[in-house]
Amino acid sequence: MKSKVKLAPDQKIIVYYFSGTGNTQIIAKKIVETFNSKGFTATLINIENVTTISIGNSDVIGIGFPIAGFSTYPIVFDFLQKIDTVHGNYAFAFDTMGGTSLWGIMGKLKTILANKGFRTLGFEEFKMPPNLFVKFPENSRRTRVEKGLRRAEDFVNNLIAGDLSWNRIPIVSEVMYRLSHALFSITEYKWHQKILKMKVDTTKCNACGICSSKCPVKNIIVQEKAVIGDHCQYCFRCVGVCPSKAISGIASPRSLHYLAEGAQF
Score class of each variant (00 low, 15 high):
Lys6Trp: 01
Lys6Gly: 03
Ala8Asn: 13
Pro9Trp: 11
Gln11Glu: 15
Ile13Ala: 05
Ile13Val: 15
Ile13Ser: 03
Ile14Met: 05
Tyr16Lys: 06
Tyr17Ala: 02
Tyr17Trp: 06
Tyr17Arg: 02
Tyr17Asp: 03
Phe18Lys: 05
Ser19Glu: 03
Gly20Asn: 10
Gly22His: 08
Gly22Phe: 09
Gly22Asp: 13
Asn23Gly: 12
Thr24Ala: 09
Gln25Cys: 09
Ile26Pro: 07
Ile26His: 06
Ile26Val: 15
Ile27Cys: 14
Lys29Cys: 02
Lys29Ser: 13
Lys29Phe: 01
Lys30Leu: 01
Ile31Glu: 06
Val32Trp: 04
Glu33Tyr: 08
Thr34Glu: 15
Asn36Gln: 12
Asn36Cys: 11
Asn36Lys: 08
Asn36Met: 12
Asn36Arg: 08
Ser37Gln: 14
Lys38Leu: 15
Lys38Pro: 03
Phe40Thr: 03
Phe40Asn: 03
Phe40Met: 06
Phe40Ser: 03
Thr41Asn: 14
Thr41Ser: 15
Ala42Arg: 05
Ala42Thr: 05
Thr43Tyr: 07
Ile45Val: 15
Ile45Thr: 14
Ile47Cys: 05
Ile47Asp: 02
Glu48Pro: 01
Asn49Gln: 14
Val50Thr: 11
Thr51Gly: 02
Thr51Val: 12
Ile53Gly: 01
Ser54Leu: 13
Ile55Met: 10
Ile55Asp: 01
Gly56Cys: 05
Asn57Ser: 13
Ser58Tyr: 13
Asp59Glu: 13
Asp59Ala: 11
Val60Trp: 04
Val60Glu: 10
